[in-house]
Design a protein around this nucleic acid. Structure first.
Lengths: 212, 212
DNA sequence: CGTTGACTTGAAGGTATTCAAGCTTTGTGG
DNA sequence: CCACAAAGCTTGAATACCTTCAAGTCAACG
């Protein structure tokens, strides 16, 4: 309902960094600037990506510009799965993001390792269906904040790499409704905002009580 | 929002039929009566199912009874994927349904064949996110009817195996809203109902125009 | 310090829900 | 085979929640 497909920012397409993230293969990561496109709807698929750092949004558009973000991907997570050789979605870097490409050599035993990753993404999507289909605005925001906290190590203070507009398009709400729900949590002493995108969970139980 | 988890009907658990569906392995199918449970949340997973005939709903419940159906499965389709050995969802037969069990022998090359199936389910779930997050009631019903028609061979007349309540819980609406949208399509001459569950598409283009 | 984009807050309006009643279909027992 | 009951579906009216429209505040950056 909100945003036009943003024209890709200028970004160092193909720029390569040598990164040594612990536990990762020692390979160069590709850097994507904030807002740059990783792949687009209709493009040929076949490459998977693992997030080294930063954050990615995967989304789809309706003809009139309404946007649904189906998933955010944070450090460590793998995305880029498609079913018939073509991408059905767009993927963009939300902020400066390093990606490790995983080539799908045909006939490799990669599918053995891929299956659990795809299954995890699938279960996550299904659980998000419950949020979009059956939860109200406050419940959606509560579930979202808890999910973000958990995926960033479970600490009580964490960062939101994405804008309110992104959150709205992920949760099927408007930016105003997102803002109001967050303000309401703040007024009730459930959360505190160190900055607009730094959240501190003061009463996580209160959020858990809402999201189920 | 609607339904309590229905107590499983009496059903011939383990009853076996010899079916010879063309193209399928010649193995006995298990018959499930309307409303009977195939698996439940928390149960040990590991078995996949292919629908021989009938229809299945896969869903999740909130503590207060709100239900979200994440997918329907019709003849030919495979379901039962789970990510960590436990089912996160419930699966029930909607009507009398025959299922072919696919055992996941560990270490088999089954994952090679499974991957495309999981990917297809994943893409389907992601596309449903767009419907739940960004489409209004009429658009949801339009998309649903087109999807049902297509999955039953693309004919202009097809059956809805599920109740209005199931449709509502799949589309994130109430039963009344589903009924009103269908009535509205009927009043506009877009569809005709031979019976309450037999739909005839008079102007499929009109529906296509709504769902994107 | 001024401008731009992101975010917040307020008020009015709209779409879907809730509550309620009536209708249709299906199944069951007499 | 009919009558009745139960379930499923439809329709109407009032309400609620979220959206839309509008204005104002805050933060980042040149």
């Amino acid at each position: 309902m909100t945003i036009q497909h943003p024209a890709a920012y200028v970004h160092p397409e193909g720029a390569r960094l040598s990164l040594h993230v612990p536990g990762s293969r020692i390979q160069p990561a590709t850097l994507y600037a904030a807002g740059s496109e990783i792949y687009g709807q209709g493009e040929k698929a076949g490459t998977l990506y693992q997030v080294e750092f930063g954050a990615v949004r995967v989304y789809r558009l309706l003809a009139d510009g309404r946007r649904q973000i189906s998933a955010f991907h944070l450090a460590g997570e793998v995305f880029g799965f498609e079913s018939d050789g073509r991408h059905h979605f767009f993927a963009e870097a939300i902020c400066a993001t390093g990606l490790q490409a995983i080539r799908q050599g045909p006939g490799s035993d990669l599918s053995q390792r891929l299956l659990p990753l795809v299954l995890k993404s699938f279960v996550r999507a299904q659980e998000h269906l419950l949020v979009l289909g059956r939860q109200n605005a406050a419940e959606r925001i509560a579930a979202f904040l808890l999910d973000m906290a958990e995926r960033q190590g479970g600490l009580e203070t964490f960062e939101l790499p994405m804008s309110r507009t992104d959150i709205a398009d992920y949760l099927g709400l408007t930016i105003e409704t997102v803002s109001r729900a967050i303000s309401s949590f703040r007024a009730k002493g459930i959360i505190r905002l160190r900055t607009q995108r730094t959240v501190e969970l003061l009463k996580p139980e209160a959020l858990r009580g809402m999201s189920e």
